[in-house]
Measured scan of single mutants.
Amino acid sequence: TYTFKVDNKDQAKKAAKWAKKLGLSFQIEKHGDTFKITVQ
C-alpha cells in the first residue's frame, strides 16, 4: 500500500490516472486543501 498527499485536484487526477494505468485500486480522500491518495 502506497500513500501520498497532493495539494490540488489536478495532481489527484494525475495520480488516479497513473493508478488506473497500472491496474491498481485507489482511494482519494479530501482533507481541506489537500488530497490523500491510497494506492494498493
Rank of each mutant, 00 (worst) to 15 (best):
T1L: 09
T1A: 11
T1S: 14
T1R: 11
Y2C: 15
Y2H: 06
Y2S: 03
Y2Q: 04
T3G: 03
T3M: 07
T3D: 04
T3E: 09
T3N: 05
F4G: 01
F4L: 04
F4W: 11
F4Q: 01
F4N: 01
F4D: 01
K5H: 15
K5L: 15
K5S: 15
K5R: 08
K5T: 15
K5W: 15
V6Q: 01
V6R: 02
V6I: 06
V6L: 10
V6T: 08
V6Y: 07
V6M: 05
V6E: 01
V6D: 01
D7N: 13
D7F: 13
D7V: 10
D7L: 09
D7A: 13
D7H: 13
D7T: 12
N8F: 04
N8E: 03
N8V: 02
N8Y: 04
N8S: 13
K9R: 12
K9M: 14
K9G: 07
K9F: 14
D10M: 13
D10K: 14
D10Q: 14
D10L: 14
D10A: 15
D10C: 11
D10E: 14
D10F: 14
D10V: 12
D10H: 14
D10P: 06
Q11Y: 05
Q11K: 12
Q11L: 10
Q11S: 08
Q11C: 14
Q11G: 07
Q11F: 06
Q11V: 08
Q11W: 05
A12N: 01
A12I: 06
A12V: 11
A12S: 03
A12H: 02
K13Y: 09
K13Q: 10
K13E: 10
K13G: 05
K13R: 13
K13I: 12
K13A: 10
K14I: 08
K14T: 06
K14V: 08
K14W: 10
K14L: 09
K14P: 00
K14R: 13
A15D: 00
A15E: 02
A15V: 15
A15K: 04
A16G: 06
A16P: 00
A16L: 10
A16T: 07
A16N: 03
A16K: 12
A16S: 07
A16I: 14
A16E: 10
A16R: 12
K17F: 08
K17H: 09
K17S: 11
W18Q: 04
W18M: 05
W18V: 04
W18E: 03
A19F: 14
A19H: 02
A19K: 00
A19Q: 01
A19L: 15
A19G: 03
A19E: 01
A19W: 03
A19N: 01
A19I: 11
A19M: 13
A19T: 01
A19V: 04
K20M: 11
K20I: 11
K20G: 05
K20F: 07
K20A: 10
K20Y: 08
K20S: 09
K21H: 08
K21V: 06
K21M: 10
K21L: 08
K21Y: 06
K21I: 06
L22T: 05
L22N: 13
L22C: 15
L22W: 09
L22I: 06
G23C: 04
G23Q: 04
G23I: 02
G23V: 02
L24P: 00
L24W: 07
L24M: 08
L24Y: 11
L24F: 08
L24K: 04
S25V: 12
S25H: 11
S25I: 12
S25Y: 10
S25W: 11
S25R: 10
S25L: 10
S25E: 10
S25M: 09
S25G: 07
S25P: 07
F26Q: 00
F26M: 08
F26K: 00
F26I: 14
Q27L: 11
Q27D: 07
Q27N: 09
Q27R: 13
Q27I: 14
I28S: 04
I28F: 04
I28D: 00
I28T: 02
I28L: 06
I28M: 08
E29F: 06
E29H: 08
E29K: 07
E29G: 03
E29A: 07
E29R: 07
E29Q: 09
E29T: 12
K30A: 08
K30T: 07
K30Y: 07
K30M: 08
K30Q: 12
K30D: 06
H31R: 07
H31K: 08
H31E: 15
H31D: 15
H31F: 12
G32F: 05
G32E: 08
G32P: 02
G32K: 06
G32W: 03
G32I: 03
G32L: 05
G32R: 05
G32D: 08
D33N: 11
D33E: 11
D33M: 07
D33P: 08
D33I: 06
D33H: 09
T34A: 13
T34H: 15
T34E: 12
T34V: 14
T34C: 05
F35D: 00
F35S: 01
F35A: 02
F35C: 02
F35I: 06
F35T: 02
F35G: 00
F35K: 01
F35Y: 14
F35Q: 01
F35V: 03
K36F: 15
K36M: 15
K36V: 15
K36D: 06
K36A: 11
K36E: 13
I37S: 00
I37W: 01
I37T: 00
T38D: 02
T38F: 05
T38L: 05
V39D: 00
V39P: 00
V39T: 02
Q40K: 11
Q40S: 14
Q40G: 13
Q40T: 13
